[in-house]
Amino acid sequence: MRLLLVGLGLLMNAASWALPALPVTEAAPGVFVHRSEHHWPDRENHGEIANIGFIVGDDCVAVIDSGGSPQQGIALRQAVKKVTAKPICYVINTHVHPDHIYGNRAFKNKGVRFVGHYKLARAMATRAPHYLSKADELLDIRVSPDNIIPPDLQVKQTMSLNLGNRELVLTAHPAAHTDNDLSVYDKNTDTLWLADLLFLEHIPVIDGSIRGWLKELRRLAQNHYKLVIPGHGPLVKDWPLGSQPHIAYLEQLAGEIRAMLKQGKTLEYAVDHAGLSAKKNWQLFEQFHRKNVTIAFAELEWED
């Protein structure tokens, strides 16, 4: 029996290494991105719905988000090997959501450091039981606690990582999309990897603070970047103009909810009426908008 289990393990490992490399595009010199389609995470796409990728330095590679399934993590690892023989030294998880962390185990190896927001480990620990219990049912994937790897390096404000003549500046943001958002700035190419701090085409999803998210986006919109990489949607080459659809949606939602609160309207009323005119601008509106209203209403109800 033991020999049979060992044999099955070897076969599974060999099969994982045989997976094809994830398709990536070199969006800027040494910056490789896999763009995903806009889908509700389900058993057909296995939760592989986010933009993920990696950055190559002279000495080593930093992976930015590992994917929405263990298999996608393996495919991303294969993509790195296809592009360069340099070792992977960092895996940067930009926040806690499954489409960004479920591939972590594929990169767990000697010399690889996992990096995240200082609140990421707590968020992982809090959400892991729910995530693990639903992965098979909702996404048709097998996820164990080994797939949810907390950061070895925790970013409290900013942190610089040197990949060899390539410095990445990581910033831990206040509560916005979540309470554990991390962005990555590549100085060599003036590329800002915003991950889910920026949504385009796919409706923004609030899991943190609408006020905090607006504040962060407005602050970032005061700067100019050659390239901005969102967590969902096309790459942005006209920043800060490219931030405006996302900002406009949050501003409209916050403005309408504040007006309803002043009128004494209920949460139920807001869910049925707030922000509906934005529907034509966003994919997956029906799936996420009402939840956005609920979260924003609860926050704005208590603002001074």
Results as ranks from 00 to 15, higher is better:
residue 4 L to N: 14
residue 12 M to L: 14
residue 14 A to K: 10
residue 14 A to N: 06
residue 21 A to Q: 09
residue 28 A to R: 10
residue 30 G to N: 06
residue 32 F to W: 09
residue 34 H to A: 07
residue 37 E to P: 05
residue 37 E to L: 10
residue 38 H to T: 14
residue 40 W to C: 05
residue 49 I to P: 01
residue 49 I to Y: 06
residue 61 V to R: 03
residue 69 S to T: 04
residue 70 P to R: 11
residue 74 I to P: 02
residue 82 K to P: 01
residue 86 K to R: 13
residue 87 P to H: 08
residue 89 C to P: 00
residue 97 H to A: 14
residue 98 P to I: 13
residue 103 G to I: 10
residue 113 R to D: 06
residue 117 H to F: 08
residue 120 L to V: 08
residue 121 A to L: 12
residue 121 A to D: 14
residue 121 A to Y: 10
residue 122 R to C: 12
residue 123 A to K: 13
residue 130 H to E: 15
residue 133 S to A: 15
residue 134 K to Q: 15
residue 135 A to E: 10
residue 142 R to E: 15
residue 145 P to F: 12
residue 149 I to H: 14
residue 152 D to E: 14
residue 154 Q to T: 13
residue 159 M to F: 14
residue 162 N to S: 13
residue 182 L to K: 01
residue 183 S to H: 10
residue 195 A to M: 07
residue 196 D to L: 09
residue 208 G to D: 11
residue 216 E to Q: 11
residue 216 E to M: 08
residue 220 L to S: 01
residue 222 Q to W: 04
residue 224 H to A: 09
residue 225 Y to C: 00
residue 227 L to D: 03
residue 228 V to S: 01
residue 233 G to A: 02
residue 235 L to G: 03
residue 237 K to P: 01
residue 238 D to V: 00
residue 241 L to F: 11
residue 245 P to M: 07
residue 253 L to I: 02
residue 255 G to A: 04
residue 256 E to R: 05
residue 257 I to R: 09
residue 275 G to V: 06
residue 295 I to Q: 12
residue 299 E to T: 03
residue 304 D to I: 11
